[in-house]
Write a protein that binds this DNA or RNA. Sequence first.
DNA 1: TCTCAAGTTTACGTTTACGTCAACGTAATT
DNA 2: AATTACGTTGACGTAAACGTAAACTTGAGA
Lengths: 137, 137
Amino acid sequence: MPDRTYSISDLASEFGVTTRTIRFYEEKGLVHPRREGQKRLYSAADRVRIKLILRGKRIGMSLQESVEVIDLYDPEHNNEEQLHSLISTVREKRERLLQQKKDIDDMLAGLDEVQSLCEQALQDKPASPTTRNRQRR
Amino acid sequence: MPDRTYSISDLASEFGVTTRTIRFYEEKGLVHPRREGQKRLYSAADRVRIKLILRGKRIGMSLQESVEVIDLYDPEHNNEEQLHSLISTVREKRERLLQQKKDIDDMLAGLDEVQSLCEQALQDKPASPTTRNRQRR
DNA sequence: TCTCAAGTTTACGTTTACGTCAACGTAATT
DNA sequence: AATTACGTTGACGTAAACGTAAACTTGAGA
């Protein structure tokens, strides 16, 4: 059923955000759900847009920037000039993402180090002082 | 020279931020530079802290969260309980970072797709209309 | 019919991360 | 002595991304 629709609270609970958040995205023009009377009806495409926006948020993108990335997909680019500028936009986005990956890898390496230091410290004193005291008395 | 110091504008220009930004970090207790009279004097350690904060920012961390990560490095953890909670903190951070890496890879895949569609579209019409017109006249 | 959950609009509040003056100090240069 | 560069402390402003409260509607069920 590719034409399934979603209520606002469907999506809110699915994505772990409030309905206020989703309405806010609409205020900002990030999504345009249909209306059934008063109620908002979200299509599968709307759902994907929100999902992609939240993905962008997780890696520190602003809402506007996420939309910018999402809009790279729909072909509004007809002439050669637009295609070239699109390609260079893609290149810039990609460079930033690669930098972010590097930042993440660096941070992961730091966490590994912290963890092994921790585990070593736990090895060096296998019995805690409290345990020792309890045993002696 | 491991005891080199930096002025506020040294660091600002090195990291591409304003001096206001660095003073703001101090207001928030993220760095504590020494003073020479009125002026702030930043040590190599201060510089690294700022660098790590900015790294955190690039991957969407708040300033507080970056500090939290940075503070994992200095051993304030003496007893067993603290060590265990530190390890579980590390685990949580790592999980989030891995999710972010996945998000980035997904987005990179999307960009690849956009780019190849672009290049194909450019292949399909190798001569632009303007070029054609110029050649015909 | 009454209620109750789910939805709606409007509007003001909040947090984070700085920007932007203003007004002043200090040290070197002209 | 005056300019210039660099620094300082307030203090207020702002944009983004929602939170929160108020007051209303609407469709489904007891």
